[in-house]
């Protein structure tokens, strides 16, 4: 009997996660278009539904009804598998994300590790898609994606290690529990390391690079490589790539929220005599989503502000700035932990 409820629970979560990922992808596209439009002082989608809110639906229908073209000479299997390779790990990563204290599909002790493991698969999708499409632009893009991977993953992991050292756990829910109010958020935990805000910035920059978002979208670089690895994709093949990209953005932002911004905790903390009806103090999914979407907003905002970096620009940034600073932060944190704990 207990087994069945567990199975049902997992199933419900699975459906929920897929729906959440799909909905997010759809509405982040909408947000992106609206936000870009307003930054550029346009209106953006407005014809389909109020404020163009049904636009993602229309886009979805359009993508789904389009023909899937496999270019001549393409490796059919790789070509078809590639989009899934981006989307599937992203969806799998959602399993360990705590949306609130109780709302988490699987509270795994090594949650952080699992997300990073899945995130590394991301680059495989681009590589295989680029390689499989038998297009020179796509191959260049694939090569770029792989070398980009080398550049940003190191500082990102170093920063993550720093966080794990401070938190003493890899369980995401426990990390969140340690940040009950805004002064205890890790971004402001100056007692652990005075460089925490910088660490957050490094983490944020790296997650931009990891999700191939501007200004690090060299792999997609529409003015150089047409659409990079996605050049040959049409219809839903392209759609799935897109969903995967946005799902990855959500994962990256969730992780930043959990590690630095207190996850589902309310920034005001829980006063001893808190009235639970007071939403402001009540920790939960709402706070998580607010923080998450603020970060997503920033990701989009960055994209519509800057030009694209050049390849060696990212390498320079990574090796000259991000890696030394994050390493320094790691050492500093280690030293401070030693001093303050003993």
């Amino acid at each position: 009997m207990g087994n069945y409820t567990e199975l049902l629970r997992l199933l419900a979560y699975l459906v929920g996660i897929i729906a959440f990922a799909a909905l997010n992808a759809a509405y982040l596209v909408w947000l992106e278009r609206k936000e870009a439009a307003h930054i550029q002082r346009r209106i953006g989608p407005k014809e389909v539904g109020p404020y163009g809110l049904l636009q993602p639906l229309a886009d979805g229908i359009k993508l789904m009804t389009k023909q899937l073209i496999v270019p001549a000479g393409a490796d059919v299997i790789l070509f078809k598998v590639a989009p899934l390779l981006i989307l599937a790990p992203a969806i799998a990563s959602f399993v360990t994300i705590p949306f609130s204290e109780t709302l988490v599909a699987r509270n795994i002790n090594l949650g952080l590790l699992m997300i990073f493991a899945f995130a590394s698969l991301n680059v495989m999708g681009v590589l295989i898609g680029g390689w499989g499409s038998n297009n020179k632009y796509a191959v260049i893009s694939a090569a770029r994606a792989v070398s980009q991977n080398v550049a940003y993953e190191i500082p990102m992991l170093i920063t993550a290690i720093t966080m794990v050292m401070v938190a003493g756990t890899m369980n995401l829910n426990e990390i969140v529990m340690q940040q009950p109010n805004i002064f205890k958020w890790y971004i402001f935990r100056f007692t652990a390391s005075p460089l925490m805000p910088v660490a957050f910035l490094i983490f944020f920059i790296c997650s931009l690079a990891e999700t191939n978002r501007a200004p690090f979208d060299m792999a997609e670089a529409e003015s150089e490589l047409v659409a990079g690895a996605y050049t040959e994709y049409s219809g839903m093949g392209f759609g799935v790539f897109f969903m995967g990209e946005y799902a990855n953005v959500v994962i990256g932002c969730s992780l930043a929220t959990i590690l630095f911004l207190g996850g589902w905790q309310s920034p005001f903390g829980v006063p001893a005599d808190a009235h639970w009806s007071l939403f402001l103090f009540k920790p939960g999914i709402l706070w998580f989503l607010i923080k998450l979407y603020l970060l997503c907003f920033t990701v989009i905002w960055v994209r519509w502000t800057y030009p694209r970096t050049q390849f060696y620009g990212l390498l320079n940034l990574s090796w000259k700035y991000l890696i030394p600073i994050s390493l320094f932060n790691l050492l500093l944190t280690g030293a401070m932990l030693k001093v303050f704990q003993s």
């Binding site: 550029q40 002082r41 979208d217 003015s223 519509w304 502000t305 800057y306 030009p307 694209r308």
Partner: peptide
């Protein structure tokens, strides 16, 4: 030119 370099928004400001 900025669009070639990957920045979209300045184009629209210049168009304005």
């Amino acid at each position: 030119f900025v669009l070639d370099l990957g920045g979209f928004t300045p184009l629209l400001y210049a168009f304005d």
